[in-house]
Amino acid sequence: MFDKKVTRGEFLRMAGFAMIAAFVIPLIKRAIFFKSSGHKEARYYKKLAG
């Protein structure tokens, strides 16, 4: 099994899945989180000039 040559198509498919797992899914999670809930202003901070 480990001697099997990976074709270009298989490599691109694996890379695509990796990109989805690494970048797209976290973005979707974040978008769902922000859409579903409001947030409260924090205390103990200051706005910086500039």
């Binding site: 947030h39 202003e41 924090a42 103990y44 706005k47």
Partner: peptide, 30 residues
Amino acid sequence: CLLCPRGCELKEGERGNCRVRENIGGRLQT
């Protein structure tokens, strides 16, 4: 942020080191 000694300076959209406080529209939000 002035809550803890880290004093995280956050640009718009950035979160503090703690992961749960974020600069949204120029205001720090929990």
